[in-house]
Computed example of a mutant assay.
Amino acid sequence: MDWSQVDVTIPRSSLGAAPIPGVHMAGFRYRGTGPAAIAMVAHPAVTLLFDLGDQAWAVDDDHGVRLPGDVAVGLLPGGVTVRGAGAGECLQVRLSPVLATELLDTAGLTGTFAGLDDVLGPSARRLGDRLRRTTSWDERFAVMSGFLGSRLDGRRRVDREVAYAWHQTHLHHGRTDVSTLAAETGWSRQRLWSRFRAQVGLSPKHAARLVRFDRAARLLAGGTPPAEAAARAGYSDQPHLNREVRAIVDATPRGVAAEPWLAIDHAAWPAFMPRSPRA
């Protein structure tokens, strides 16, 4: 896919609504006339995809499952690719696992993807139709922010201890110890493990692995050598990084660095890009 044919738009700070913690959005417009195939990387967020173009796009995976239209992608999906026959537009919304649990029905979503109506109910169709009636990315971002904001009051809360454990895992790039987190929450290790897995969809250990991998993938895509990326992302050495990358995306670190799905992340998700160690 020719990424020079992809325009990326992100929300401006001047959009009227206050940002919602745990929500990041980006709009993509593919101007090419040929088929498009965008492979998705495992990321520590639940992803909502809205097909806003005139030509129907679809999402499929390595197991032959294919869904057209708007979809939700869970944590650690395997081989998920967005495909289109030609030019199109897509709104991508990333929700932290804690916020996704509170706002969506994410039961069973980990490791796979589903139609948006499966996680949002009847409101999914109305939201998609409203987004497709808009005429600008600013309007789309405002509609999406308003929709998510309207669900905050009625959301079901995850345990404070679980939210704290996730926040610390993300803040420290996966360099967290479950026993330490349990002690800081006042829970036993077993209770934290059980409640975290039930509410987030992954165990604390797997959540930390995903966060570490995400940091390493962005470092590699930015040109950081594998040995340095391993050290900065918290792996014991480069072979450790090799094993984890292979386990999560079935690739080598150098293969990850060359994958097209990270080619425009600096434009779409600047808040997630790792800083230079000297910054």
Rank of each mutant, 00 (worst) to 15 (best):
M1Q: 13
D2Q: 08
V8W: 09
I10S: 04
I10R: 09
G16P: 06
A18W: 08
I20Q: 06
P21G: 07
V23P: 02
M25D: 04
G27E: 09
F28S: 07
G32Q: 02
T33N: 08
P35G: 07
I38R: 13
A39W: 10
M40N: 02
M40Y: 11
V46T: 14
V46S: 00
T47L: 13
L49N: 01
L49K: 08
F50T: 05
D60Y: 01
D60H: 11
D60E: 15
D61Q: 05
D62S: 14
H63L: 08
H63A: 15
L67M: 01
L67G: 01
L67Q: 04
D70S: 09
A72Y: 00
L75C: 07
L76C: 09
G79N: 06
V80F: 04
R83N: 14
A85P: 14
G86I: 04
E89K: 00
R94K: 13
S96V: 06
T106Q: 06
A107P: 05
A107M: 03
L109A: 07
T110M: 12
T110K: 11
G111R: 13
A114T: 10
G115Q: 15
D117P: 03
V119H: 04
L120E: 02
P122M: 05
P122Y: 04
L127E: 01
L127V: 14
L131Q: 12
L131D: 11
T134G: 02
T135P: 10
E139K: 08
F141S: 05
F141C: 08
A142H: 04
V143I: 12
V143M: 10
M144R: 10
G149T: 14
R151P: 08
R155V: 10
V158S: 14
R160W: 08
V162P: 09
A163F: 10
H167A: 15
T169K: 10
H170Q: 12
H172S: 12
V178C: 10
S179E: 14
A182S: 12
A183M: 13
L192I: 11
W193G: 13
F196T: 04
F196H: 14
A198C: 01
A198T: 01
A198N: 06
Q199N: 03
G201S: 10
S203H: 11
K205I: 03
H206V: 01
A207R: 07
A207F: 06
A208N: 03
A208G: 12
R212P: 02
R215S: 00
R215N: 03
A217H: 03
R218A: 00
G222D: 03
G223W: 06
P225S: 11
A230H: 05
A231T: 08
G234I: 07
Y235H: 11
S236W: 09
Q238F: 01
P239T: 11
L241S: 07
R246L: 13
R246C: 11
A247S: 13
V249K: 00
T252E: 07
T252K: 00
G255T: 00
A258H: 07
E259R: 07
P260I: 03
L262F: 09
H266A: 14
W269N: 06
R275M: 00
S276F: 08
S276A: 15
A279D: 15
